[in-house]
Amino acid sequence: MKAAETGPAAPFRHTPYDGSKKPFTIGLEPVATEHWFDPDGNLARHLARKAELIASRRDVVFRAEPGTEAAQEETLRLLASHLPATHPDLYGLTGPGLSVTGSTVTVALEADEPALLRASRLVQDDLVLMRKGADGYRIAAASLCFPSSWSLAEKVSRPMSVIHENVPGYAGRMGQTVDRIFDNLRDGQIIGRYNWSIYDDDDLHHPEAKQLTPQVGTVDGSLLAALFVRVERQTLRRLPASGDILFTIKIHQDPLMLLATHPEGRQLAAGLAAQLRAMEPAQLAYKGLTGHRDRLASDLESLAAS
C-alpha cells in the first residue's frame, strides 16, 4: 500500500490485473490499520463529485434501514478518530467537526444528516453497512456514489446470495466461503481485495450495467485510446459495538493509453491481456467484454511487445 498523496494522483496505483491476483476469486488479504483508507491526489475532486451526487440524487446514492442509526454513528465516530491519526496531513479536527485539507469539506460530528452519509463525505470510498439476518448478511445501509454497474435501490436489504447472483462462480462454494469469512471476521481485523473492470468513460458514477458500446475505438482503430481500467479497492471491518461489517469501496481509474508511457506499462499490458485471454464466456459477459475481448487483448499484446 502507498502513502497518502496530496498532489495529482499517479496512474496505476493498484494493478490487480498484473498477474498478482486472479479474477473471480475471493482474494482477501490482511490490511494494516494504517492502510485502511487509501487517500490520493484525487481526494478533493472525488469528494466534490460525491457532494454533487448527494445534492442531486440522494435517493439513488443513499439508503438506510430503520434501526441502523447507531451503527451509522459508530462508523462516523470511528472514521473521525482514525483519519486524523493516520493521515494528519489530510484530516484535522475543527471545532465540532472534521476538515479535509485541500478541499472545502468540513463534516459536522453532530448534524441532522444521516451519520453514514456524513462519514462518506470524508473519504473517496463508498461506505456500506452489512448486517446479519436470517438469510445471511445483507446491505442494511449504504452511501454508494461510485458504483461499478450496480444499483443500490435493487440491492439494499437483499442478502449476499441475491446481491451476487449474477457473479460467475459465486453460487455454491464461493458464496459459502464468503459467509464463513464474514462470520469469522474479528473486531479490529481488516481484510481487503481488488476487482477490475473496463469502461469506455471515466465517470465515477456507474449504476447501469457494464457494456462497452459497439462502436468504441472505431475512430482511430485503437481500443487502448478509448478505454479506462477501473479498479475497486475493497475492505471489510467489523464494527465493535453494533457487530455490523463496514464494507468500503474505493475507485481508481486509469486511461489504458497511459500504459504506453508508464515505466511498467509493457508488463501491465501483458498481464491484463493474459487475464482477458483466460476468461470464460460467462466471465466475459459479466464484465461486458464479450464483443471486445480479442481485439483488446491483441492491442495490449502489441503494446507489451513494442
Rank of each mutant, 00 (worst) to 15 (best):
E5F: 07
H14F: 13
D89Q: 07
M257D: 13
F62S: 00
A142W: 02
G97S: 10
Y194D: 06
G188T: 02
H35I: 15
P214G: 01
A171P: 05
I251V: 13
I245N: 09
A55W: 04
I139A: 05
A171I: 09
L83V: 04
D18P: 08
A260S: 13
E232T: 00
L76K: 09
P66S: 15
H262E: 10
L223K: 14
V128M: 00
D38N: 03
A48E: 08
L28D: 03
A297M: 09
P8A: 07
S222H: 08
T104G: 09
D179S: 09
A32K: 07
R13I: 11
L224P: 12
P30N: 02
S151R: 04
P84L: 11
P96H: 06
L76D: 14
W196S: 11
I191V: 12
H46C: 11
V216T: 10
G271Q: 06
V128A: 00
L93S: 09
D201E: 07
L116A: 06
V178I: 13
E301V: 05
S99Y: 08
P23C: 02
R230S: 03
M174L: 04
P66G: 13
V167T: 00
R295V: 05
S222D: 15
T15L: 00
K22P: 00
P16N: 08
S242D: 11
A140W: 08
R138D: 11
L43Q: 01
G92W: 14
